[in-house]
Structures are given as structure tokens and as C-alpha cells.
Design a protein around this nucleic acid. Structure first.
Lengths: 146, 146
DNA sequence: ATCCCTGCAAATCGTTTGCAAGAGC
DNA sequence: GCTCTTGCAAACGATTTGCAGGGAT
């Protein structure tokens, strides 16, 4: 289904369904975690997919454009991506110790954000919300280790 | 007061109270908007303060470290700063058209964030929240211009 | 004096782009 | 065959860093 959606997008915009784009698409949907562009490039390299970094970046942009992939800035200097399939909108808890990322959804917060916007007569297009802190596992380590 | 706090910080950490650092500190507190490192560098340059970009970056890091300045990532490729004096914690509405930034505070959202964290047994250290959209002025332009 | 600080220019990191050769329609 | 794509390497923009000379305590 993601393949079909992508092919449609390509057709619609007059772009071509190339080998390299198929490789990137498949690799993106093969893994269900957060990843960055270089992760993806290295995974493709390991598979000998023969796709360059430049093409990884270019194809990721298309996947974002076609709403198959979400691009996020978790404040670590590079962009983080995740595919959308089976991942409705959510926000993130980012552990500053181990880098792990937890997802959460809270519609009450979303409602309040909407309310803030109407107070400011501001038309919301998107939002990002990250909570930085220490995950439960890393807290345990702290309790033991000192 | 900010000067005193900074001097204390410097003393405490064995650093020196230099001309360049004083220049940067003053310029940071002279303007009450959001700015990026290069804005600040150029303002200092206009004043002939004779402070290099490198020193601007290095001093900003100290100001952040000493809690006089907040550093944020508004997803525009560079970091945004604001001084803390008279600016209690808040989040931002970012206009994607004109780049203007509105501040808002909503304690109900903060409470809900705290609640999310306890559900995940996650110790919050900080959070960021940005709402991207179109500010009222830019909406007006749209209504007129088409 | 000692160590810290500075400017400079070069280095870095993630990402983008110009170009000439190669694939899709 | 015309156009879109690709890989490469160079370009990029924000930020950091090594170094040698100049200040603060």
C-alpha cells in the first residue's frame, strides 16, 4: 500500500519510479523505529543496494512530501525520520542519557494547543513537542550506580 | 543584576571577566527579542565592539550554562536565543510565512505533560513545544491577495 | 608569571547542489 | 529521444576548534 501511494505520488508529479527510489522506500518501511538519513544510508549500503547519500536525502524529501514519512527535529543536530504507516500523530519523550525515544499521544494537550491558537488568531499547520528527561531504565541505573 | 549573576558564574567556574564577554552580555540584554548567533555578531559589529563570531558562540554557551539565556531550536537550521530576564518559561507560535514568533504560556498543558511523564515513569528535565502555522497578519494578507 | 581568552582560518557535521553520464517513459 | 535521475565531489551554512599571540588575576 505504501508502494502504491508512492508510485501514485510520483506519477502525479511527473517523476520516475526508479530502482534507487524503490530501494529507499523499502528500507524505510522495513524498520519501524526512528532513524536519521545516515542510518538509512548505511542500512542500504549493508544490503549493497548501491544508493548514494545524495539519493537518500533526495528520496527522503519526496517521501516526506508525499506524506509517507514524517521528518522531525529532536534537537540533536540532524533530522529524525519515521514512517507514517500505523503511526498516527504523536509526540516524543527523549531520554537525554541513552537517546531512546518514547512516543505518546494526548488529545487533551492537542485540544489546548488548538485553544491557544484561537486565542492568538493563529492558524496551526503543525506542531512539535518534545519532552527531554531521563527514562525509567536510566533512572534505575542511577539508583544503583550512584 | 544579570551582570552580577554572570560575574558570579565566571568567578565560581574560574573563568575571566573579559571585555569581550561584557560586550556580548550587554548586547544580549539590550534587545528583548529572539535572536540567533549571527544577529548578535552583526549587532556587535555595528557597534564596533570588536568581538569575533567565535567569541560570540563561546560566550553564548556560557550564558546558557549560567541560566541567563535560553537556547532553542525552532527548526530553522540555526539556534535561536532569548534572554531569561523577565521571560518566565513559555512556548512558541512560529509563523511559517513571516518568521515572527509569538510566546504563550499554558499551565494546563504543562500539567498534562507532567502527567504523561508520570505515566511513563519518565523524569522530565525540560521540554520544547512549537506550533507552526500562519499568524493573523499573514492570514489577512492571504485574504486580500488571494 | 600563569593560565585563560581571543581572533583567525581551517575543520567539522549534516545536508544540498552542479555536473556529466545513465536510466525511465 | 527527451527528460528525469544518479553518483560524485564540491559547495553549503551553522557551529566548533587548533593555534599562536594578547589579556586578566
Amino acid at each position: 500500500m505504501e508502494e502504491k501511494k508512492f508510485v501514485n505520488y510520483l506519477r502525479r508529479t511527473g517523476l520516475k519510479n526508479t530502482q534507487a527510489r524503490r530501494e529507499v522506500l523499502q528500507e524505510v518501511f522495513r524498520c519501524h523505529h526512528h532513524f536519521d538519513a545516515d542510518d538509512l544510508y548505511l542500512r542500504l549500503k549493508n544490503r549493497r543496494a548501491g544508493v548514494s547519500r545524495a539519493t537518500v536525502y533526495r528520496t527522503l524529501a519526496l517521501l516526506v512530501e508525499s506524506d509517507l514519512v514524517r521528518k522531525m527535529d529532536l534537537g540533536e543536530g540532524r533530522s529524525t525520520f519515521e514512517h507514517v504507516l500505523g503511526h498516527p500523530h504523536h509526540d516524543h519523550l527523549v531520554c537525554v542519557r541513552c537517546g531512546s525515544i518514547l512516543e505518546f499521544r494526548n488529545s487533551a494537550i492537542e485540544d489546548l494547543q488548538q485553544k491557544v491558537c484561537s486565542e492568538f488568531d493563529f492558524k496551526m499547520l503543525s506542531h512539535t513537542q518534545q519532552i527531554y528527561g531521563v527514562c525509567s531504565k536510566c533512572q534505575e541505573k542511577d539508583d544503583l550506580g550512584g
